[in-house]
């Protein structure tokens, strides 16, 4: 056999260069297709960048003229051009953290129920119902909370805590019992992030290998010991991720909160007092913002919300992905 000359091709390390070598013989269809999927994929980073840049530019005048006072001032007074975000920022954090605290044990319980303990016949229906809860639009939660939850708080819960339990002097429960309050916002947020945390937690739990559970059962563990010693430790990072994803949701939730939090620029010191969140501040004021500085200050508020949620979500996704890759 006559030795043919040996063409050296595809010796370069990068696939990108390898595929560009082939481009000469690629059909038009392949090129169009490659262009379409690559361009679509690039839209996502481009969009994020654009969101950040657009908001940063619009917020710049306010940042320039107000500086750190944007974050430290407790007064929001449009006519006097005082735009302090501190009450709204703290209100956002307080309502979200409160909701997370209430929702986590319940959501984890539901996740454990569906993935470990429920009788087989109940698993699918319960999972479907929880998914259904997640599909209810925010504005419907808001409507329900406004018409049902808030009056119940005002009529029954608040007087009970204040008078029957005689806790009226505790600062946490101070203030008149209006109904619309930090507590109402936290409760509706709790209900809203419950199904979300439960769904992510369920996936994380189901990713724990069967062999781990069987090993525990084979050692004579009870059902609960199996969950505690074999399932939960393996799922820990993912469960924390689920919590933080829920927190991200709560931070950016707008409509339901706007409808029940009372929208008052007060530092969130009492559960019974109205408060504000950044998202509801935007929802209420953006459409009728007066003057460029007001708009710019609201843009700065959006920027703060954006930064907080990106950090929180990025961290959570990283955690969830880490557990899923352990498999």
């Amino acid at each position: 056999m006559a030795a043919p000359p040996i063409p050296s091709f595809a010796t370069d390390q990068s696939r990108a260069r390898e595929s560009s070598r082939q481009r000469g013989v690629q059909s038009i269809g392949d090129r169009l297709y490659g262009g379409w999927i690559t361009a679509s994929a690039l839209v996502i980073p481009a969009l994020l960048l654009l969101v950040a840049v657009v908001i940063a530019i619009s917020a710049w005048p306010a940042v320039q003229s107000l500086g750190w006072r944007l974050l430290t001032d407790t007064t929001w007074d449009v006519p006097h051009a005082r735009f302090g975000l501190l009450p709204a920022l703290l209100g956002t954090l307080a309502s979200s953290v409160l909701a997370l605290t209430l929702a986590t044990p319940l959501a984890f319980g539901a996740a454990i129920f569906v993935s470990e303990l429920a009788p087989p016949r109940l698993r699918r229906p319960v999972a479907l119902l929880i998914d259904g809860l997640a599909a209810i639009p925010s504005v419907v939660y808001g409507l329900w909370a406004l018409v049902v939850l808030v009056p119940w708080l005002r009529r029954d819960v608040m007087p009970f805590v204040r008078d029957t339990l005689a806790l009226g002097n505790v600062p946490l429960f101070a203030g008149p019992a209006y109904g619309p309050s930090l507590l109402a916002a936290a409760l509706v947020l709790t209900i809203m992030i419950l199904p979300f945390i439960a769904a992510v937690a369920r996936e994380v739990l189901q990713a724990v290998p069967r062999s781990q559970r069987e090993a525990a059962l084979a050692l004579g563990a009870t059902r609960w010991e199996m969950i505690r010693d074999a399932v939960l430790p393996n799922a820990r990072a993912g469960l924390v991720g689920a919590m933080i994803l829920g927190l991200g949701r709560a931070l950016g939730e707008t409509m339901a909160v706007t409808m029940v939090i009372g929208n008052a620029h007060l530092l969130p010191t009492s559960l019974f007092q109205p408060a504000y969140t950044i998202a509801s501040l935007l929802a209420n004021q953006f459409a009728e913002a007066s003057g460029p500085l007001h708009v710019s200050a609201l843009m700065a508020a959006a920027g703060v919300l954006l930064a907080v949620t990106i950090v929180v979500n990025g961290f959570a996704r990283w955690l969830v992905r880490r557990t899923e890759q352990q498999r």
Binding site: L47, L48, V51, E253, L282, A302, L306, T309, I310, N313
Partner: peptide, 21 residues
């Protein structure tokens, strides 16, 4: 990763972004 970040953005921020755009 960025798609996950994008899906986690508060929808009101997207609204404001499109308003500006």
């Amino acid at each position: 990763f960025l798609a996950d970040v994008l899906s986690g953005l508060p929808s009101i921020v997207i609204g404001i972004f499109v308003w500006e755009l």
